[in-house]
Amino acid sequence: MNARVVAIFNQKGGVGKTTTSTNLSHALAKAGKKVTVIDFDPQGHLSISLGMLNRQASGIDAVLLDGADVSQCVIPMRENLQLIPSGPKLHDIELMSTGGAKRSEILRHTLLNDFQDQDYVFIDCPPSSGLLVANVLFATDEILIPMSSDFLALQGLSDLIKTIRKFEQVLKKKYKTQIVMARYTSSRKFSKEVLGKLQQYFPQQILATVIRETAVLSECTSFGMTIFEYRPKSVSANDFHNLAKDFLQGKVM
């Protein structure tokens, strides 16, 4: 059976993409699901968040540029959770003007054929809308959009939806798109308004649990730990545990 492949994508930075990739994937792995995360951001922040500090290790860059076998790049990180790092050459792809179709086909073929023993594959996209993201949008059918509860994130979402629509139009497919409120400041009225605005435009597409913004979520990255390792009894660990349940059960608001 094929894995469910999900691109975690928002071209705006600072909305919680990598935090969501790290902790949602670990939550699912802890629930017994076999999960692979692909670090598609040349900055390699997902790898760092999971505790992998060797930034020279080959990863998805070697698969796309050199035809390497994906099995050579997989690194087991936790029980049921494996990582494919970005690799040092991933950034080169962003600067290339040709060969996009070929790389997209390689990625799609890899995702379809090389993860059949996995339940989920998450692709942590870079905060841009360049060629790397185009590769991912070409190769996947499902998008999870992390959002923060501020105005510029709403403006960014507007642009993001236009980008997705363009791809849908050209590729003649419809993405399954869901949103996760990944940085929510519950004490601010403005955050509630932003969430309300999202509910207005994206009914039944927002995962039911919001991730409240906390200090521990920022801190755990520097230790290369997920929230379940750093503060397993914190509200943030509880939030991600509930988010994983929502994701599995399709529970939306």
Binding site: F151, L157, S158, I161, K189, V194
Partner: peptide
Amino acid sequence: ESLLGYDPLAWM
């Protein structure tokens, strides 16, 4: 009573 002055998603 709204804190949102402009709705960037209104085009939808």
